[in-house]
Amino acid sequence: MNLEKQRSEKETPMNIITWMNNYTGLSDFTLVGFFSQSKHPVLLAVVIFVVFLMALSGNALLILLVLSDTRLHTPMYFFISQLSLMDMMYISVTVPKMLMDQVLGSHKISAAACGMQMFLYATIVGSEFFLLAVMSYDRYVAICHPLHYPVLMNRRVCLLLMSACWSLGSLDGFILTPITMTFPFCGSREIHHFFCEVPAVTKLSCSDTWLYETLMYLCCVLMLLIPVTVISSSYSFILLTVIRMNSAEGRKKALATCSSHMTVVILFYGAAIYTYMLPASFHTAGNDMVVSVFYTILTPLLNPLIYSLRNKNVTEALKKLLGVNPSFKEQ
């Protein structure tokens, strides 16, 4: 009798509702982030805010230069402007929420907002995977088949390639987000990250996610394998063509054009391989956040610098915009 009484007291309507909310994922998540681990969280927040503004302004300026200067209306600069657009979008998906949480002192995020953040981030990052591959193919056609370049990379082809990048990226978001957010979360709802990333949220599930994690791993391998194959093949042919060039100036220009893109590829793909392809034994919450900060916050800042400081055409367009008389030279 006492046992039945204790059970009935525990199973009050409020307790049952709380349990259902915790189990079905209706309640909020908590983003632990990395400010709590810092000895100077305010200073760290200020630094991240400054980096965020610099990344937005740098990428916006690069897009403005490409749009305003007709001499930059070429496939290469069109793809660079699209890369800047993606960088602006995915840094805006994560950083404002993180900074607002620090200012307001609330680290809660609803399940719907978490799912939306996860979807947008997966879509944009997936699209950037394929965009970097498209950019390497563009350089391959320009260097290895210069006479056919206007036909092979005309405006219609460029738009189709960009549409394909966005479609494949959104496929990644549409597959991963619904599955991840329908898992039961019946334990801790603290996400040891500063945004809702798929691996970090999956760790909170109280169900067996082994099959899903295996399929996600295979999906990520495929998402990386296709672009990496395109990039490797393109640059192999480019290298062979450059070696056969008789002009030292031609070799220098070709290598200078490709080096910027390869720098971005190494930075972006290196961080993605660590996050999505290395076994769980290699991961810790702290390391995962550091790597995510690198390719979520720092990479969008570095990309416009890499493509502007190392590119004479962009610097000349900037001088023209600022009213300085540039001597624009075609590359």
Results as ranks from 00 to 15, higher is better:
T74F: 02
S38N: 15
C144N: 13
T30P: 05
P75V: 02
Q102G: 03
L83M: 09
L204R: 05
V134F: 06
K108F: 10
L305F: 08
A45D: 09
H148Y: 14
L159S: 14
I231C: 08
A55K: 01
A45H: 06
L56S: 04
Q117G: 12
Q331V: 13
Y217K: 07
I175V: 14
L67V: 09
G25Y: 12
V157N: 02
K320M: 10
L83T: 06
S27K: 07
G33Y: 00
A113V: 00
W19S: 15
T229R: 02
P41N: 11
Y121Q: 11
T94Y: 06
T202I: 10
M100K: 09
T214G: 07
S232R: 07
I91A: 05
M20K: 14
I273R: 07
G173I: 03
F174D: 04
V201T: 04
V314F: 00
H40R: 13
M181Y: 13
R244H: 15
M216F: 11
F79H: 13
L168S: 05
D288P: 06
G270W: 04
A113F: 02
N287G: 15
G126Y: 00
S292I: 00
V134C: 14
V66D: 03
Y212T: 05
V291H: 00
D101P: 01
D208K: 11
V157Q: 07
S170A: 15
T209V: 04
Y274P: 07
H283R: 14
L171Y: 12
K97H: 07
A272G: 04
A272N: 09
F49V: 00
K39W: 07
L31D: 00
A271C: 10
I179R: 06
P326W: 01
P304I: 00
R71A: 10
